[in-house]
């Protein structure tokens, strides 16, 4: 009888010690996360603040808060040094992104459906090329692609920038949709087939609605990557009137950086705005998409 209270006192002390240790380490974890979080986010916050600073102030204080806030950077930057305003370049970006997103969504759905639901000759070989393309560095195909588009007269147009994607050229998305489809049970599709729907009807009315979350992820990633794409437009587009935002930004660095940092920062903020907006609108699709398919970036 006498031993029992003693043991529980020991245990209590032990538990107390453990609890304290847990508290210390959780404080440590939070502090670490907050510090890392600040390092991650502060450059962006600073950029946003600095875009409202005067030129003289940008390189004079590490604070993000502008002392004499001004929107001059936005006004001047928007005009650009070209005959066009930034609106034109945003428009061009959209003219690339929208066909690319739609084309990707449609073609990748068809292809993923084909792979996930049918058996056909050479399926194994064709599927293995999806994986191979996933790992194939673009750098090795870029030059002949350029020559091909030159020969069919597509240079300085938006076509080279979206047509390959509209033919399910982004193996990553095909792969992601296949993974997603494999996880969806086929009962509903089979029921629809029994009721006389053909495979295309089944795809449109049964599969696509279930595939929606994954398709949204696909569109969102395509949006971001195309917004960020620089090398493609750099190679294929030559006249300023066709420039998307990424090239326009590079152009404004080349022409105005010597004297107008605030303009460049202001336009950089605007260039990031669409991606940030889309990201915050649809965060959960990103996290889900990235966890099902894995992702580059």
């Amino acid at each position: 009888m006498t031993a029992i209270p003693q043991i529980s006192a020991d245990t209590l002390a032990n538990m107390e010690k453990q609890r304290r240790r847990a508290r210390v380490s959780s404080t440590f974890r939070y502090s670490l996360l907050i510090i890392v979080g600040l390092i991650m986010v502060y450059p962006l916050v600073w950029m946003f603040g600095a875009s409202f600073k005067t030129n003289a102030e940008i390189f004079s204080s590490p604070s993000f808060w502008p002392k004499e806030p001004t929107v001059q950077g936005y006004i001047d930057g928007w005009q650009t040094s070209t005959p066009y305003t930034f609106a034109k370049f945003f428009g061009n970006s959209m003219l690339i992104i929208i066909p690319k997103m739609i084309g990707t969504a449609i073609s990748c759905t068809l292809v993923a459906y084909g792979f996930a639901r049918f058996d056909f000759p050479f399926k194994k070989i064709i599927f293995s090329t999806v994986i191979a393309t996933l790992l194939l560095p673009n750098v090795v195909t870029r030059i002949p692609q350029y020559l091909l588009f030159r020969d069919i007269g597509w240079l300085d147009s938006f076509l080279p920038l979206w047509v390959p994607s509209a033919l399910a050229g982004d193996a990553f998305f095909v792969f992601m949709l296949i993974q997603f489809l494999r996880a969806i049970p086929r009962d509903m599709e089979e029921a629809a087939r029994v009721d006389g729907a053909n495979t295309l009807q089944t795809l449109i009315y049964i599969v696509v609605p279930m595939l929606m979350p994954a398709l949204i992820s696909v569109c969102l990633f395509q949006f971001m990557w195309t917004m960020n794409d620089f090398l493609g437009p750099l190679i294929y587009l030559s006249s300023v009137e066709n420039y998307p935002i990424s090239l326009a930004l590079k152009l404004s660095i080349d022409t105005t950086e010597a004297f107008a940092w605030n303009q460049i920062l202001a336009m950089s903020c605007l260039a990031l705005a669409p991606s940030l907006f889309v990201f915050f609108m649809a965060q959960k699709y990103f996290i889900e998409g990235i966890s099902t398919g894995g992702v580059k970036g």
Binding site: V111, G114, T129, P144, Q145, P164, T199
Partner: peptide, 25 residues
């Protein structure tokens, strides 16, 4: 062959924009 029709866009894209450029380079 039905499945092949569905993956046809991919196969065309693969041949035109990946396989051919790969060999050509």
């Amino acid at each position: 062959y039905l499945g092949l029709w569905y993956v046809a866009p991919y196969v065309i894209g693969l041949l035109l924009f990946t396989a051919f450029p790969f060999v050509a380079s």
